[in-house]
Design a protein around this nucleic acid. Structure first.
Length: 110
DNA sequence: GTGCTGACACAGG
DNA sequence: ACCTGTGCCAGCA
């Protein structure tokens, strides 16, 4: 059985609450919990994020996790997450999240 | 105790 | 749009 710190459990719980097609930033989660900071949230996901939709947690500017961009973009296309598509034909360029539309404040429940 | 590191955020150039 | 520096908080050598 896992002995997760309570803070980690809270973070994971919030991440699981994020509806498909939406995203939250590390800072938003920290603020939503009212405790810790973005870096702590990031650390929790790095350690225990394997069981939650980690791709729905992005940086405030909408950039994806280094090394996991391809996997994440696959999910976004499947879930219909608003992306800022690169201008036609820009090969090698990874799309970023359209934060203005995709950001979820946690208010409207799915 | 001291210092570096990290799945971050923000401001400036 | 990209890179750099500074601030923040916790973990680790």
């Amino acid at each position: 059985m896992e002995e997760l710190p309570e803070y980690a459990e809270r973070v994971l719980e919030v991440v699981e609450l994020i509806p498909p097609g939406r995203v939250m930033t590390y800072g938003d989660i920290a603020e939503w919990l009212g405790e810790g900071g973005p870096r702590q949230v990031g650390r929790v996901l790095a350690l225990y994020g394997g069981g939650v939709p980690w791709w729905r947690v992005v940086r405030s500017d909408g950039t994806l996790l280094p090394g996991h961009e391809v996997r994440a973009v696959g999910r976004y296309r499947t879930e219909g997450t608003p992306l800022r598509e690169a201008p036609r034909g820009a090969t090698g360029h990874v799309p970023r999240i359209d934060m203005r539309r995709a950001r979820w404040d946690g208010m409207s429940t799915p």
